[in-house]
Design a protein around this nucleic acid. Sequence first.
DNA 1: GAGTGGTCTAGACCACGGT
DNA 2: CCGTGGTCTAGACCACTCC
Lengths: 237, 237
Amino acid sequence: MKPAGRGTWQEIRGIMLDRILNQQWKPGEPIPNEVKLAEEFGSARATVNRALQSLADHGWIDRKRKAGSRVKPVPERKATFRIPVIREEILSSGDTYDYKLLKRAQVPAPASVTNALNLGDRRDVLHLQALHFCDDKPYVIEKRWINLSTVSKALAADFAKISANEWLIANAPYTRAEFTFSAVGSDATSSKHLKIEPGTPVFQFERSTWDAENSITLAVLTFAPGYKLTTVSDIFG
Amino acid sequence: MKPAGRGTWQEIRGIMLDRILNQQWKPGEPIPNEVKLAEEFGSARATVNRALQSLADHGWIDRKRKAGSRVKPVPERKATFRIPVIREEILSSGDTYDYKLLKRAQVPAPASVTNALNLGDRRDVLHLQALHFCDDKPYVIEKRWINLSTVSKALAADFAKISANEWLIANAPYTRAEFTFSAVGSDATSSKHLKIEPGTPVFQFERSTWDAENSITLAVLTFAPGYKLTTVSDIFG
DNA sequence: GAGTGGTCTAGACCACGGT
DNA sequence: CCGTGGTCTAGACCACTCC
């Protein structure tokens, strides 16, 4: 005869999620505490705890000491995107990849960059422009500014051979990043290199990265028309 | 005299992450197994396991039974967005919210919808168009198709009073969703209601949701010009 | 103060997957 | 086969926070 405890934490999570979905546990209402659930499922409290943690991580419940756990009134849905390394993204879909450095210059930072990277009066940045090709067609144009106060080594890198992103991954890992997605009309530079009419709607992806409080780089990626960013989110995605 | 074990799993994770970041543990190389790490940190294996799990969850290491754990050659960076409920997003920023249903019709599904929702020959869908206002200005136009085979109750809902999204959250929770972001030129309908020139670059957010294998709804949100989607990702975000 | 979740421990068994 | 990570247990103590 087996003891009652037969659940893995994922099974227990599944049971509890069902109760939330079919409103056996109603939005905003408290659910039994860990000890009681452990008794009910015939498992250790740690197992129930892990299941509840997971539900909380994925936005189904709120947990507070003393106050207990409650079903969120509105489930908090999230979408997660892998931030791709362009070269790998293209190669993995079986296309050919090419890269061309268009511009490299040590310049005083424009105001928008000073602001985005919190540069204060340290205004020396390395500015790069590059074009990435997919199947010999322009795929994305990259404008980038690198904070030389933080990453002075970047001056010695050969960005004609390795893209700034890949060099930075290896040489200046970041601990915090800010991403922005938007739709803009193609500007003069992008239009020229992507071979499209100025003003064509294009998808723009902006990323600034930081190591603790030190800004590393600002990258603005402008994709060729038709680019879509897609993600599938499973219930625990 | 205290035993050596003084670390929480987060502290241990922090130490191990440092080793990865300063390449004491090099990309692609194996790291010691859980038993050895537990000895080193003077903690239980479960504690080390939790720390390693977290590193794996966040894309810093790969773990395989028997093969052990290795530092990922290229850290896998992710960005997570909360999918906002428009009304709450607007209200929480202190603006006024308004909503207007523009159209409601039971129609045969257009081909793109049949395809996106995998409708087969069950072609009856409820089509809605609605406009959301922020501070009395048009903010986003929503085109939506609801699969009546799955959510027949939707025919009885009063979508003039409650937005489809909020009704569906309460009445047809989903277990899987697919999100797509893109930049498009504003079409005739959107231009008219957002009061912009046709062809203006606008941000478009498309979401289809599913309950197991049954599609629920397809929503296409077209935002007024200037909309940006932003997220900050901490090292363990 | 007291109830709840957060975490740690020591030990055990299991499941996967490389050899 | 057998080493590795994945998980469970039973018990303990701690930390937060509501009352």
